[in-house]
Nucleic acid binder design. Sequence first.
DNA 1: CTGAAAGCGCTTACAG
DNA 2: CTGAAAGCGCTTACAG
Lengths: 337, 337
Amino acid sequence: MPATQKDIAQKIGVSQRLVSYALNGQAGVSDAMRQRILQTADALGYVPNRMARALVTGRTHQIALCLQRLTSTFAHEVTQHFVKIVMDSPYQLMTVNSMGPVHQGGISGVDGAIFFGSVPPDAVTHFPVVEILNDTRGFHAGEPIRHDAIILIFEDASRAAMKHLLEQQMRRIAFVSIPCLMELYEPRYRAYGTLMAAAGLPVEKIVIESRDLLIRDCVHQTLEKYFSEHGFPDALFCSNDDIAIGAYRVLRRMGRRIPHETAVLGCDDIEESKDHVPALTSIQFPCEAICRCAWEMLTARIENPALPPRTKSFKGRLVVRESTTRKRIASLVNLKN
Amino acid sequence: MPATQKDIAQKIGVSQRLVSYALNGQAGVSDAMRQRILQTADALGYVPNRMARALVTGRTHQIALCLQRLTSTFAHEVTQHFVKIVMDSPYQLMTVNSMGPVHQGGISGVDGAIFFGSVPPDAVTHFPVVEILNDTRGFHAGEPIRHDAIILIFEDASRAAMKHLLEQQMRRIAFVSIPCLMELYEPRYRAYGTLMAAAGLPVEKIVIESRDLLIRDCVHQTLEKYFSEHGFPDALFCSNDDIAIGAYRVLRRMGRRIPHETAVLGCDDIEESKDHVPALTSIQFPCEAICRCAWEMLTARIENPALPPRTKSFKGRLVVRESTTRKRIASLVNLKN
DNA sequence: CTGAAAGCGCTTACAG
DNA sequence: CTGAAAGCGCTTACAG
């Protein structure tokens, strides 16, 4: 229905080639002719057909952002950063749930993809990919690095988090997480397990099953039931901030004070965490820098597929706020964050 | 680089047509042959080229979600709903900042688009569009409805919000908003202005200029400066929840109690609003139902472009929570929300 | 400086 | 049931 280059060419009485060259700003067209073509294109409401162009150039100028759990607020922040980055680029962003279409025959029609989380092994990809992964400390060491990768190192910050809790005499510390983050290779869970064992304390796991997308509601249900059956831990080590903030509501409803009765610690340090009372202690990554780095890696590889594989690491950092600080003094240092 | 239908056809020694028919599950291929083709496709790692298919069918199976201010948490919730909806459909979702590419020559290569906010007049679209708009109460009545539309009616709820504040003897009520929501045709601002005038109270506007994407930081800066220069209003009518929650932090930092010294009221009722202390009073819309309705309108029109234009309205509803309730009793009714 | 033509990977009438 | 072919709207060598 929209006008094509052929329509423009016919209207003026020139060849389609000339129209294409004029529209794309290539040499080989006289200035007068270029003007005329541009005006006619405008008059006809010409919009280039991206599909046709993509078919011949092999480039769609679309990038897939593949998120494993689109449900999380952190995923939202990541998306925002990419949307912002993409706005200044010639690319468009396609948001894909990597649990979804990838498993239904692969993604196609993109110049590259950024996977937040590991690339599913059955995702046949014929395009450059950057993975943003957690540090699994050699757990998957046998597997070759198939893609450019950004590694998020949770190890040190997680250990620091546990030490911080243990130092304040918290004994009953529960790890609260969705199932996929409660594996042995998961750095947060490892740090938790290791330090609990070292302190001679028993592990306590609270699993949040979230089939649908509203994770906070799942947290409410699960924790309410758990606390009434098992009582309250001294501290909750939550695998992300959404879970932590979900826990806030439950604790508050059940009349439990944070942090003095139950401390809460999250991961990802989403924007919102600072706005809650008490402000949430969390593990922070330079999210924007990570996104920009991933973008740079991806576009560099699209330009030059022969580049050697690259890996870059980012270290998480424990940001102590009020939600885990029982001594008022100790918290003042970080309150500004 | 990926295998094509031609590759499969050559490998087996049949025509490309047969491969296409087999792959698409169309009649006209013997079962044995279909099996063989499917297996070969699998072995070769065949992924259909969406561009080529789109070029001939005219369908890309991509839908653009165009958001005006990608910055808002509400936009995130809308996106989540669409991602969820799209997962169960044959479509993919492209997230577009309608301030962006639309102004750079139009969107192309999508089967349709959902605009959250009005479609820019210079966005030449050759595909079905659904607009999700605020009720401007006939302000743009002269303009024909160009697209299927969903109208969000803020009018009643905004008036209810103002009455709620005024009933509690709040006199100095400020309207806090980004500039584009502080126009005369904007229903929230209209209700605010009308009821303030009726009560014989002066209008007080606080404009949040947010050039970049981190709106809450802008709120912090603007309000901190404003309050120290002009003192504190009795209540803040914020045009969205992000602004309201941003205001929380400033008020808290400056030692101002919510709601007893300054009440705060938001719009959109994002998930997070319930988790803050005090819980935020806000204007709620059935967000998921709205998204599903938009989706249904769009897909129906894609199937049948000749359909008469449709319009559907949704009414906002004031959800009173603690952030505006000075009398403890009165709030109990709604606290469950 | 310009025209006529091939081809990207598909779908789909059109013949056999 | 199957093959040979046209064509979707572009880009880009290839001749003039």
